Simulated scan of single mutants.
Amino acid sequence: MEIRELQWFAALAEHEHVTLVSERMNISQPTLSRAIRRLEARVGVPLFDRHQNRLRLNRYGEVFRAHALRAIAEIETAEQRIAALIDPDAGTVALGFLHSYGTWLVPELLAGYRSRAPRTAFELRGDAADSVVDGVRCGRLDLGLTSPRPVGDDLEWVPLREEPLCLLVPVGHRLARRRSVKLSELAEEAFVALQPVFGLRQITDRLCAAAGFTPRVAWESTELSTLRSLVEAGMGVAVVPTTGSLDRQGAVVVLLSDPGAARTVGVITPASGLRSPVAQRFLDYVCSTAHASYA
């Protein structure tokens, strides 16, 4: 059984049209038909129902397609990994990160790395902190940019830099004219916050607990941009990163004077080590940026 025959079968299973698939795969119709008959002879059952020169994938074909697609994907992954071993600049890095890092940190890192390894490709996946951590743990991601530091000894963590946090309040709020504020002064305020799976929410909850209260969260969101817009609309106050918060028109940034009012940006990788040289090279570059920024 050849990999190209599996690829032909997968294409035919999708389109169910011999002429179309033969043209797209650049093979003759007789060659395609013979390949499908060989596959059916090997598995011992028809994979397609044939009605007046039309094909329809049957239940046996559905089972075979699921396994064929996995086999094709495994072969392609093997080819990519071998290519990376030969040339660590030409592979693909699966990089996960918090959504908010996609507006500044990720572009900064990729722009700096491009001059070193212009042929490296990236799969970029912005998500909540818990999802980024799970992605690295289960191998869907090579490395992740997240905060706070995840719990567990199955991940390596390298802190990169400190990102100060601030309080965002609506224009006209009682604290809008203040230069700084302590979180303990906000015990009676309505908060707008990210959902609990997000790292920023977890940090906010810890800071408020250290200040002696549990924040009264009136509105939850999955995006910082929505959070800031809710504050501008007067729906509450929010603890947000200083990055991207200084140019708001309908809200005012107030500094937080509480100790530890910052989130540490870090990179996580499996404790067992990275799987590809291309990911290791990018990790080395990311970690090299920490010396200038995390001080």
Rank of each mutant, 00 (worst) to 15 (best):
E108Y: 15
A111M: 03
R116G: 00
R116D: 00
P118L: 00
F122G: 03
E123P: 00
G126Q: 06
A128T: 06
A129G: 11
D134G: 05
D134A: 05
R140P: 13
L141R: 01
D142N: 14
D142A: 15
L145G: 06
L145I: 14
P148A: 11
P150S: 05
P150L: 05
V151F: 15
G152V: 04
D154Q: 08
L155T: 10
L155D: 06
R161M: 15
E162P: 04
P164H: 12
C166I: 14
V169Y: 02
P170E: 12
V171F: 13
H173I: 07
L175W: 11
A176F: 05
R178G: 03
R178A: 08
R178E: 09
S180Y: 01
S180R: 13
V181H: 04
K182N: 01
L186G: 11
E189P: 01
V192R: 08
A193H: 02
V197F: 06
V197P: 03
Q202A: 10
I203D: 01
T204N: 06
R206G: 13
R206V: 04
A211F: 01
F213D: 00
T214K: 11
R216L: 04
W219T: 12
W219I: 14
L224F: 12
S225M: 09
L227C: 14
L230A: 08
V231M: 10
E232C: 10
E232W: 00
A238T: 15
V240W: 08
T243I: 15
S245K: 12
